[in-house]
Amino acid sequence: MARVLFLLLLLLPLPSGAVEPDEILDDPALEARARELSKEIRCVVCQNESIDSSNAGIARDLRILVRDRLTAGDSDREVKDFLVARYGDYVLLKPPVKPKTWALWFGPAIILLIGGLATAVFLMRRPRQPAAGTPSLSEAEQARLETLLKDDPPK
């Protein structure tokens, strides 16, 4: 049982970044911070890939830059600001919340709200019982309906 479990564990996909051995910092805590930060920074020449997982040349340069700045004592915030000043918000995989991006962040919720309200209004307005004006069957009609159903029962 333990052996099977071990084999299954081997099959688990491991998070494999593109970080190369020569980039890794000696300080494991700092390296861990660099890895986390790198996951939030876009490789600017790739399609929606972080610099942590991209092996493009510029991604490597940015990874080294992130590590250099962390080693120099920058906070995570400062590293991000440094990159945003040069590459714009585009360099962050998660766009910041600011007036320019409100439509992006709150748009879907607002559309859902409008849709929900419209649905609610529609359902509330719909009469629950058939309108009083709808004529019901007369007795003769009812009798004929029953004979028709009896003659040709539903299959």
């Binding site: 040349g57 510029i58 340069d61 940015l62 830059l65 040069r86 714009g88």
Partner: peptide, 13 residues
Amino acid sequence: QDGRAAIEWGVTG
């Protein structure tokens, strides 16, 4: 040589 100036300029390639 190391591409640092390019990063300063926000160059992607």
